[in-house]
Each structure stands twice: as structure tokens, then as C-alpha cells.
Nucleic acid binder design. Structure first.
Lengths: 361, 361
DNA sequence: CCTGATTTTGGGAACGTTCCCATGACTGTG
DNA sequence: CACAGTCATGGGAACGTTCCCAAAATCAGG
């Protein structure tokens, strides 16, 4: 009977096609143990300098690259973060994503991006995916009525957007809506638009409530009954802004009209509607937007708007998140100021009443 | 001397805050082995139905969620894909990302998004990050002069954009530039614009070369010397389109002008320049864009353009990539057709020569 | 040259899963 | 009733790291 020596059996054969070098291969070449290689490549202090160089050279010679999965599994840190926004194709969130991604890359981390499409179920499923991927934390712009899933998320979160208010215990980064709205209304005021019509967001959303609360307070402070304001609701889309504007024009009749839209897409929709109605902006209709998306420069006239610091929001959110993950800061609420961008969609009623019509910011 | 019993030592204490239940916890509750739990939860066939239900119930009862890192490490598949584009904040790539992300989510995969910012070094570093994250594959819109890193990438790739030509051995998804350019030129032709000026991309880029090659051939076929065409280069940005348009207007003098821009941002820049020069679009200047970004509806007049199927590109690229990873298809080059969008930035010279000026697509 | 402290290294366990193989229970057939 | 054949289950190795602890090597001081 012929017996093959059991001791000589090849115990482990690498799967074909997956033969990336490991720390052990490096150790073999450098003539040290895997522990030493790990120390050398992780920048630990307790290692001889010559040994380190020898290991680094060996690693380079075979093109070794650390397996992030294994590292994450063992260390409990994945170096990945999640970003969940309603729609990455929306210029505002694309800009936020860009800010977050740049900051993450700067910290050698990666960003998992998801679009929830305003769908709570989809958002919940994305959050689950993030948890399973063992990301170290997530930046979330939650869909309004999806508070439960977020509360149960169970890992570091930084919130973006209005629903930060609903989670006082979570960190958040947002723009200063109150300051922005007031700045916009002050600006309108200074141009002689004392009672602008408002194109607001959908009634259910918290963003809408916050926006309208400031408007309300502002007019109370300026001795105007907020109830006399013309408010039309929209869905934050171009189409709905267009529709809202048509309704406003119908109600307002033929006088000069000024509208303040709760986001730029609706403002630009309002401008389209103005054109469709055969009216001119800013001569007949003044329009002020809110967001500061790049597309605002393309309209004629360019859209004057209250700009949110989108990229800054992404940037700070990422920073805050990584601080939180690293245990540097546990909880913080950051509010970034909005900025006025004047491009020409607002008529100056003060000057025009002196006989000359001027378009200004 | 007091000795603590060595055998009674707690060998392993879970790190605080990281006490997520594992497959073993589930096994303990369900009263089966971890292998059985794995089988039950992975949908394997060889398991008793009652046992499966028992396990699933146990898993739910403690809120077990599979650790994706461990799964990936062991199985060699991470269920993650990479996407590297020049700039996620650019509406075209944001749309591509949206398409890819939706398709990935549909397949229960995640997408790691990176912006290279046209920087080859940054692109290389992102590719390295993807390799270390052990993604299953990547969709890349490469920076033109970064061919080496891509060739050495060493995992399934699907290319987006013009550089697909440089890698005939790699799969790719792109729009049919030739068809699109011809469609645009035909359209201009039908409106009486026989010799449009061209605002092209930067000379170095392959996208530029491809665009101009089609233009060149087209005019040769139509008995026009391509050398007589006015071509101004831009950088695919609004500003550079604006600058190029100013140069064109200076050279063209006072006649009617028609320009075909190689992307929408430059076309919109050209429209801004037209306005700055005191000219009207489309009465004095006709403008045709290329891309189909949403912002094209906001200009006055709306931008007529040859639209690339951005979301479709992301969608198909992701599909192709996952096919490739799963070994279904090894290599394919998909070309999607462009579509003409007519909005009003082009004058109809044929009708206008009959006495009436009409804006048309 | 010895001793104790310090630095440097190696070995093995652990992270949480999947995969392979062995075992046991059960079924049907001769 | 013995046997091969299926089916369900359990045990252990493996994935490639990091972390802990012990061993080895080096160093300083007497």
C-alpha cells in the first residue's frame, strides 16, 4: 500500500485570480515575521529603523497593498463613511457630497453615497446597508417622516437639513435659515418690495415650517399682518415653481409682482412662468431665490438668491463626523451663515419710482 | 502569595460600544451551530425549513445584522463598487452617479464615489483606495493623461468617456459622439446655419479630438473646407465659453452668428457673452449645446442641445460592471445614442429669410 | 562580565464570516 | 436487516489583518 506523507500535503492553495500579496508574503521576502511587517507598515514606533526600511522595500517590490477589509474587521474601524441625501443629481446635494468627499479623501477615508429619493423606505434600507458595511459613521439628510430609523441607527451620525431640529441629541450642520430669510427679506425691503409673494415648500416638510416661521415673525416685526401675504406652495421642483407663479400672477392681476421662492429651482420655474405670461423680469416681476445653485447664473436676468454654503456644509459635516468617531467631540450643532448673491432678477422700486427703472440685486 | 486561577481568566472582552450580535450569538439563541445559522441566513438550500425559521426568528429577536466586512473578507467579494469621475458636483456626472447608484442599490451593492478633479495624481490615489477597499470593480471616467494607473488597476473596470478609445481591451459605456455631432450639424443645416463657429474643448483632451474629427468629416462630406470654420477652444467651463464667444463675436463682426459648443456649460457661457455684447439670442446669435444638462431650460431662450443619456450611461455601466464581475460578460463596448433637445436658442434662417424671424430648436 | 531595564521581534489568538469535510439521521431498495 | 444514498447539521480551518504577550536582543551601569 502506497502512502503519501501527510506532512507534505499542500495545506492551502490560493484561489485562482485572487493572488494579491499579503502581509505574510512580505514577511517572507523581508525575512521577518508578519507582526514585524504589520508594525513597519502601520507606522508603529517600536520598531528598528533598518528593519522598517527593509520591510517597506520588500512590500514595494511585490506591489503589496494592505487589505482594508481585513484591517477593518480586526480593528473595528472601516475608514468608510456614509452619505445619504435625497438626490445626488440635485445640484445642491451634489455640492454637499463634493465637500464631504473632499474632506473624507483628505483623511484617507472613503464615502459611500446613497440617494433616498425622498422615500423613507429607501432611506431605511440605505441606513441598513451602511450599518452592514460597518461604516464608522454617516451624514444623513433625512426624509422628514423617517425619524424612527434614524433614532435607531446606532452609530455616529451628523445630520444635514431641517430635521436636525427634531433630533436635538444628534450633531448637525446646517445653514442659518433664519438669518438667510431675514437677509433676503431685508434686501427686498431695501429695494421697495414690502410685501413679496412667497413660493413655499410642501406643507408637510419641516423646512417649510422653519422658512415660514421666520417670514411670519419678520412681518410681524415690521408691522405687517402676515395673513395678508400671498403664499403658494410648491414641491421644490421647477415645475411646481412654474405652476405656483402662474397662480400668483392670476391672483395678483396686472401690478408689479415680487416673489420670494423657498428654493432656487422653484425661483427659476417662476422665471419661466413669468416669461410664459409675457411679462418681463425684473421690470414686471421681481424674483428672489434660496439655495445658490450654479444654474442661477444662466437665467436672464441672472437669479438673485440667498445662497447656502453647500460645499461648506458637506465639509464641516464630514469634519464633525470624524471628530465624533475619533472621540474628539461628542456633540455639536453647527450653523453656517447664508450669503446674498445679487444678479439682476430684482427691480429697484425705489430708484424706479424716481423715473428710472434699474435692475439690481 | 495570592494566585488567581489562570483558567478562570476572561480571555476576551468585547470592546465597549462594539457589542453588535454575531452569528454565534444567534446560534446560541436558536440552539444550533454557527454553520447552520450561516446557511439559514444566506438562503442556502440544504437546510430544514423549520430550522431556518427558528434561526431567522432568533436573528430578528436580537437585531442581528450580518457583518459585511467579515463576509467580504472570507468570500472574496465585497459587494462594493467604485465610481471615479472628474467632479461629482458637475451636473452631468452627478446624473451618471445617480444612474450607477440606483442600479447598484437594486443589486444590493454600494457605491464608493470619488472626484478626481481632473488631477491624475488624485485619480491614481482614488484608484489605490478602491483597490485597498477591495471593491469588486470600478466605473472610471479617466483623466486623459493617466493611462498607466488605469492599465495597472488590476480589477474589473468599465470606462466612461472618451478615453475608452485608448483602452480597446476594456469595457466601456459612452454616448455616440459621432451620431450626436452629426445630428446637431444636420439640425443646424436644416435651419440654414451652414457654417457654424465651433467652441471646442481643450486641445489635449481626447474628447476634443473626437468631436472635431466628426465636425471635420461632416464638412468635407458637405463640400465645405473645414479649414474655413471658426474654431475657438475652451475648458468646458462657463467662463471659458464666455471668453470664446467674445472672441468669436469680435472676429465675426456684425453678421448673424451661429455657434456649436462642445458642452452645455460653454454654450450657456456663450449665451451670457451674447447678452453682454448687447446681442440677442436667437435673433442675432444662434447657440447649440452638447450634453443636455438640466440647467439648459433656465436660460432665455432655453438652450437647444444634443443631449447625452447621462443617467443611462451610469445605469448601463453599472450593469456591465456587475455582469463582468459575475463572469456573465467579459468585454463589451456600449454606445448609447444622443438625442436632440430643441428649446429656442437657434434661429430658423430659412423661414426668417421669407420675412419672418422664428426661434426654433 | 553580570544584572536589570529597554527595545525589538515573533507567535498565536481574535475579528465574524464562509467553505469544506465529517458525522449523524433518515429514507428507500434489495 | 444491511446497505448505499440523500439530507441536515456541526466542527474547524481559512480569509488578512491587528493586538497582546512572551521571548530575544540590546543597552547601560556597576
Amino acid at each position: 500500500m502506497v502512502t503519501f506523507p501527510q506532512g507534505g500535503v499542500v495545506r492551502y492553495m490560493k484561489k485562482a485570480g485572487n493572488n494579491r500579496p499579503t502581509i505574510i508574503d512580505v514577511a517572507g521576502i523581508a525575512g521577518v515575521s508578519k507582526s514585524t511587517v504589520a508594525r513597519a507598515l502601520s507606522g508603529a514606533s517600536n520598531i528598528n529603523n533598518e528593519t522598517r526600511e527593509k520591510v517597506v522595500k520588500a512590500a514595494q517590490s511585490i506591489g503589496y497593498e494592505r487589505n482594508h477589509l481585513a484591517q477593518s474587521l480586526r480593528s473595528g474601524r472601516s475608514g468608510m463613511y456614509g452619505l445619504v441625501v435625497p438626490d445626488i443629481a440635485n445640484p445642491f446635494w451634489a455640492e454637499v457630497a463634493r465637500g464631504a468627499q473632499d474632506k473624507a479623501a483628505q483623511k484617507d477615508a472613503s464615502l459611500l453615497v446613497f440617494s433616498s429619493d425622498w422615500n423613507p423606505a429607501r432611506e431605511a434600507s440605505h441606513l441598513r446597508a451602511l450599518r452592514q458595511a460597518r461604516v464608522d459613521g454617516a451624514i444623513v439628510n433625512p426624509v422628514e417622516d423617517n425619524t424612527d430609523d434614524l433614532a435607531r441607527f446606532g452609530m455616529p451620525v451628523v445630520l444635514i437639513g431641517s430635521s436636525a431640529e427634531r433630533f436635538p441629541e444628534l450633531s448637525s450642520v446646517g445653514s442659518d435659515i433664519a438669518q438667510g430669510v431675514r437677509m433676503g427679506l431685508n434686501h427686498l425691503n431695501s429695494l421697495g418690495h414690502m410685501q413679496p409673494a412667497i413660493i413655499s415648500g410642501p406643507a408637510g416638510r419641516l423646512a417649510h415650517v422653519r422658512f415660514m416661521r421666520v417670514v411670519h415673525d419678520y412681518f410681524l416685526e415690521h408691522n405687517t399682518d402676515p395673513a395678508t401675504l400671498l403664499v403658494e406652495g410648491g414641491e421644490y421642483t421647477v415645475q411646481s415653481g412654474q405652476d405656483a407663479m402662474h397662480r400668483i400672477l392670476k391672483k395678483k392681476g396686472d401690478g408689479k409682482v415680487c416673489v420670494f421662492a423657498a428654493n432656487d429651482l422653484m425661483a427659476l420655474g417662476a422665471m419661466l412662468a413669468t416669461r410664459e405670461a409675457g411679462l418681463k423680469c425684473p421690470q414686471d416681476v421681481s424674483i428672489l431665490g434660496f439655495d445658490g445653485i450654479p444654474a442661477g447664473v444662466f437665467s436672464d436676468p441672472g437669479l438673485s438668491t440667498v445662497a447656502k454654503p453647500a460645499r461648506g456644509i458637506g465639509d464641516r459635516a464630514m469634519e464633525l463626523l470624524s471628530d465624533q468617531v475619533d472621540g474628539r467631540v461628542s456633540h455639536e450643532k453647527i450653523i453656517l451663515p447664508c450669503e446674498m448673491i445679487t444678479r439682476g432678477s430684482l427691480a429697484d422700486m425705489v430708484k424706479s419710482s424716481n423715473g428710472q427703472l434699474m435692475a439690481t440685486g
